[in-house]
Amino acid sequence: MKVMPDAYYSVPPLGATRSAPPEPALADRLRRFPAGTHITIRGLSKTFAGTPVYDNFDLDIPKGKIVSVFGPNGCGKSTLINMISGILPYDRGQILFDGKEAHETRIGYVFQNYREAVFPWMRAIDNIRYPLQYLGIPKGERQARLDRLIESFEVQFDLNAYPYQMSGGQQQLVSIMRALVVDPEVLFLDEPFSALDYEMVMFLRGRLQKVLTERQVTTLLVSHDLDEAVLLADEVLLLTKRPTQVAERLHFDAARPRTADTSVSDDFIRVKSRALEVFQREVRK
């Protein structure tokens, strides 16, 4: 009798991949990064079944900004943020958050597939509360944080419901709140809105922007929707095809909150057109 599911693989330990001693060229690169950098990625390499997805990849991510990651299908956007967040081990390289490793950093992660990310056996409120117990802060402070968060998200529905009693958008909101309740140093979002209807997307974008602007969290957002990538970003990170490199970084400085009106502004259109140009060039290569 076959007893094990074929697709079985174990959960990788967080931060399991330790960096090897850097080569001289790398050692030099390690010491240089722009002011205001939060996350430094150096010499990152990752191969899946013999195919390199990343080979000696370098990147600096600024502190307190929202960076959108955009690139061709399968270029390794999820792989990148999974490696940075410590979910996925990498083969070589170094990723540091202000000199710390992922497991020493408070991280929030929002999955695309909220249905398989929230805990259906817990009420929404307990889902949001869950990560607080690992922070080592007193009970009263935990409750205060929870209350503050609920207030800033202006939650309109009953958080005592179970996730399966809620709409997709509400579940994803719970998932976002769970990621933010710990006051993360870095927030990762992997296509968080792609499974939701447009009205819900608009609503969640608004709430998320508001809280992120209030709290100045370093944020990495993967999006396959260029409009969204530009609209929410302080900076759009455009990636090449595999082996993946940074194709271009575009700044977008429009005032917040950004709404549907922002997306018809000249500035927006200029950045988006440039992004499209780079994207098409990279896809054709």
Binding site: M4, V11, I107, E116, Y130, Y134, L135, V182
Partner: peptide, 17 residues
């Protein structure tokens, strides 16, 4: 236990469990 889907476990790990 072996066949349990992995994403929620990853979510818990990344939350510091």
């Amino acid at each position: 236990v072996m066949g349990a889907r992995k994403q929620r476990q990853l979510a818990a790990r990344v939350m510091g469990a």
